[in-house]
């Protein structure tokens, strides 16, 4: 097992920011500075692609304007495939959190082909924060919505969400458990009486609740308000809908178990519901030890 595989999900000690010379660049740099202040880390700016001297100067100017000190940031210039190069740097430099800006929604074609930010989400081997339509305003994080599914990765995801919530002084964390009606329908087959089906369901839910309670009791939540909600519906879709309806500032999800490809967009993987239409900023927690 390499060092990176042993590394815990948090605290974030090294943050990398994917930089492109797009209209959002200022907002991305501003967000990077906020993250640096919150987590007290050094920032690695990664740009992949050809660039000229003017662009290099412009990026340095921006970094200076947002008051980054010389010893707590670094700029890496790379050429080649954008996604591959960024992921290579993240792996080589043992980055804990990769940050990228992303549009709320992309055209159907672009969604299926995959933009850089979304490709990073599907392939990253470290946690990734997607900033939805980043702007220069310093919006406080008030509500964080986090996945509470019955999955080994959920422990690290909830812990990371609590860590972020405490660091950002968020007001509330909503832990969402989703009940897949398709799976429930399977246990409601005609082989069971109504009582048996209800008991089976209760048994399943009780087991899930106990596991979640155990996770939450082991996590130091401090004064943070933690709500647990159970939603009936397709996993991934329901939590995304909840985050949108409750105007969450950050949605925190488990990383996918396997590398996602176009089939996962045709027959959506849970995470694809959020990627298709970002309800807010999205943090995908990659618990390396569970891979």
């Amino acid at each position: 097992m390499s060092n990176i595989e042993k590394k815990p999900v948090y605290p974030f000690e090294k943050i990398a920011v994917a930089v492109a010379f797009s209209p959002n660049i200022e907002a991305i740099i501003a967000a990077s500075k906020r993250l640096q202040n919150i987590f007290n880390v050094s920032i690695l700016f990664i740009h992949v692609g050809n660039h000229d001297a003017a662009q290099e100067t412009y990026l340095k100017e921006l970094i200076t304007r947002f008051a980054f000190e010389q010893n707590n940031h670094e700029i890496i210039w790379e050429t080649g495939d954008t996604v591959d190069k960024i992921l290579e740097v993240c792996k080589a430099r043992q980055v804990d959190l990769l940050v990228a800006g992303a549009l709320e929604k992309e055209s159907l074609l672009k969604y299926f082909l995959g933009s850089v930010a979304r490709k990073l989400c599907r392939r990253a081997k470290c946690s990734i924060l997607m900033l939805r339509d980043p702007d220069l305003l310093n919006k406080p994080v008030q509500r964080i919505v986090v996945e509470g599914s019955d999955h080994p990765k959920t422990v690290a995801t909830i812990e990371a969400a609590i860590y972020v919530a405490k660091a950002t002084h968020a007001l509330a964390v909503d832990v969402i458990q989703e009940e897949d009606p398709g799976r429930l329908a399977l246990i409601r087959s005609d082989a069971f009486t109504d009582n048996e089906a209800d008991n089976n369901r209760e048994k399943m839910l009780k087991h899930e609740n106990e596991k979640l309670e155990e996770i939450l009791s082991c996590t130091d939540c401090g004064n943070l308000k933690v709500n647990v909600e159970r939603l009936e519906g397709k996993p991934g879709f329901m939590i995304t809908k909840y985050a949108r309806e409750h105007e969450a500032d950050l949605l925190v999800l488990n990383s996918p178990d396997t590398k996602l490809n176009v089939i996962d967009r045709v027959f959506p993987h849970d995470i694809e519901f959020a990627l298709a239409d970002l309800p807010c900023d999205l943090l995908i927690v990659h618990s390396r030890t569970d891979d």
């Binding site: 897949d180 398709g182 089939i263 996962d264 027959f267 993987h269 849970d270």
Partner: peptide
């Protein structure tokens, strides 16, 4: 009863 996402 067939859930494509479960298969995937």
């Amino acid at each position: 009863e067939v859930e494509l996402s479960i298969i995937r």
